[in-house]
Design a protein around this nucleic acid. Structure first.
Lengths: 209, 209
DNA sequence: TCAAAACAGTACGGTACTGTACCTAAAATT
DNA sequence: AATTTTAGGTACAGTACCGTACTGTTTTGA
């Protein structure tokens, strides 16, 4: 998918992999800083100390470049530390989510949300990177809690995976409220824990997942 | 705030209020369709059947025009019908929220989310229009439920006002999942009702509100 | 040694938008 | 009637960007 490699067996000077990475890095930085629309190819080239020709030799345009930049960004691996309790694990995970999300993803999301509405390719890549890749986190936390003997609703992992990102993104993108400790405790104690440790009323969780 | 009115007492031809409204309408339509960045003044003028001069006579630039367009858009008044039960009221309200939100607000949000990060003026206007204006809805629903004798946590209104928009926007903007009946029932039965009818664990709700 | 490809740099035409400046017509006040 | 301001329409310079096409220069394989 790195695209546009000529079929030739490698006659002349080979492509410099470092240039490719520099361009992708520059694209990602600019995407975060100014957003998809305002990001220009000249700016990417300048930041990567590359020429436009070097960019267009690899990708056909901005869309393709951005998709690959996001795709290769690598998943933000959140490794929730085992704190000894479900509540502690969730507080820790929430902290990690927020630390990571505020650094990059918020601006990135805002920058490409509009582009997502036009380019399904970009939307799919971004969603897979940011959402699905994080689904394992909820499962891990719940698994530990069950092993510990803490009471957990069978849909507890789904509760976490659906509500935690929703609440964080809502604050971050929409209301603009602070993502401080008070919010994290509020989220964990008033929303997540009550739902995850409840026994009944989880009829739809499996269906909707 | 309609701006730029000349101080003169009304000597020559008066401004046509209808032109102003046409321009604001056109701006809002285009904002929804193509987003803030891609929306051009020429396009606004063309759609409003106005000349650019007529626009620049009233507003200094795109920013000011968009802020006023959103400000004057009027609040989307959701009037939750009294269905006889808290659950029914919430299902109905959620339906109304989604009907209204998918028509305009999602694209509008996506269109201006990035601009919000640059223009605090725009951000404040938009937030006040879309979020704070809807806060009375939760209060009304809970008020009715209490009057009916249905058990409600003291923070029930806050639960509704925080979680319902967060879950809807998350689906709409981030995950892109369907906002169908299954989702609404899931939200009401698995999240909102359990939290709103619970008795304890609402320590933070008042603080954070 | 020589051809081939990649490289940074740059120039180019084409396109699109911005904000201003005009034009003529229309609508109001004095 | 004369004046003033709005109105739609259009032309204009200035700017920015895109994607291509050219410079030499460098790095490889044949």
């Amino acid at each position: 998918m790195t695209s546009l490699r000529p079929c030739g067996a490698g006659r002349g000077r080979p492509r410099d992999e470092a240039r490719e990475q520099a361009i992708l890095d520059a694209a990602l930085e600019l995407l975060v800083e100014v957003g998809y629309e305002r990001m220009s190819m000249v700016a990417i080239a300048a930041r990567a100390r590359a020429s436009k020709a070097t960019i267009y030799r690899r990708w056909t345009g901005k869309d393709e470049l951005v998709v690959e930049a996001i795709r290769r960004r690598g998943v933000d691996d959140i490794g929730p530390t085992d704190t000894g309790s479900l509540r502690g694990d969730m507080l820790d995970t929430a902290h990690q989510m927020i630390d990571h999300v505020s650094r990059d993803d918020a601006a990135l999301m805002a920058g490409v949300l509009l582009a997502m509405r036009k380019s399904p390719d970009l939307a799919a890549t971004l969603r897979s990177q940011m959402i699905e890749a994080k689904r394992c986190v909820g499962e891990l936390i719940v698994q530990r809690a069950v092993a510990r003997g803490e009471l957990c609703s069978p849909a507890a992992a789904d509760v976490f995976n659906e509500l935690a990102p929703a609440m964080v993104f809502s604050r971050l993108l929409i209301t603009g409220e602070a993502l401080d400790d008070a919010f994290i405790e509020h989220m964990v104690d008033d929303v997540l824990l009550p739902l995850m440790t409840a026994v009944g009323a989880d009829s739809h969780w499996r269906r909707v997942s």
